[in-house]
Amino acid sequence: MKVAILGCGAIGGVVARAVQNGEVAGAELIGVVHAEPADPPGLPVLDVESAIARADLVVECAGQRALAELGPSIVAAGTDLLVVSVGALADDALLAKLRDTGPGRLHLCSGAIGGLDALAATARMGGLDAVRIVTTKKAPALIQKWMDEPTAQRLRTTGEPVQLMRAPAREVTAAFPASANVAASVALAVGDWDLVEATVVADPNAPLTSHVITADGSAGSYRFEIRNHPSVDNPATSGVVPHAVLACLARLAQPTGAFA
């Protein structure tokens, strides 16, 4: 399986080098597509058109805007697409383009969280009455461009937790595009953006990034708590995310009995 990586930052760079080094059986790196002025050392670089033409699978690690701009042309050309920035799929029109038009296939990466299979099964069985996710990260990692300076300064200096937002997953995903892909993943798993309530908490003393998911429905009650070390290169994401991408790649390259 010939693989191209879209984006070469804290996630894409790790994925690209692992594939290049032969760590994913059955997968071959043909290159990376990136927007930075300097090329990443030691990695082959492609433009988007070459990546689409040559790859069997493009792995999106470049953020929501890049997915919205480039994703439709990738699947329209018949190339499969593995999405990391699932928050972009809060746009129903974009999701429809990527999922329903083809001929390339859409694959989603669970990223920093688990339990999505149980949530999907429960939603299918008899529906869910309530789903909540609370994401807690180091305060400075949650500063956004839309925040005014007093709010940003508060996050730089606060000594206690601050609840920044509590709203339906679609709204939270839009407000925190680099930090709330987890809320989008939960909403996509249960098939209802409005049912999932997402909360973002900035905590200067949080040793790890945490995601606490609770759900209640006809099948039972569920609680998942995930606590990840932040990425060394980008504290807005978890260090485990590129390895979740690599696990997805391994299943796609050689589907031999692994969990989907």
Rank of each mutant, 00 (worst) to 15 (best):
W193R: 07
Q163R: 13
A96K: 15
G239A: 15
G42E: 05
G102V: 02
V3D: 07
V190K: 04
M147Y: 04
S110E: 14
D47S: 01
L195F: 11
M165K: 04
D100C: 01
D203R: 11
A236N: 00
A77I: 08
L188N: 11
P230V: 03
H229S: 10
R65K: 15
D47Q: 02
L81G: 01
L106D: 02
L6W: 13
D233V: 11
G9V: 03
D192I: 06
A247K: 10
F259N: 02
T158K: 05
I5T: 02
A68L: 09
L6I: 10
A178G: 00
D47R: 01
P140Q: 10
C8A: 01
V84Y: 13
K2L: 14
A198H: 12
V33F: 00
P161C: 11
P177K: 14
G257I: 06
V134P: 09
L106R: 01
P235I: 04
D92E: 15
T209K: 03
Q144D: 04
V240C: 11
A93H: 15
L119Y: 03
G87L: 08
P204Q: 14
A55F: 13
M1G: 11
A16Q: 05
P204A: 13
E197G: 14
V190A: 03
A53W: 02
P44I: 02
A18F: 00
V241W: 04
A35D: 01
A27I: 09
L94C: 01
V232T: 06
A244N: 07
T151E: 06
L116C: 13
Q64K: 15
N234H: 13
L81E: 00
P235Y: 02
V86T: 15
S179E: 15
E160G: 07
A38T: 01
P204V: 11
V24D: 01
L89R: 12
Q144M: 08
D100Q: 05
V240L: 09
F176E: 04
V75T: 10
I113E: 09
S221H: 09
V212K: 13
L142K: 03
N228K: 02
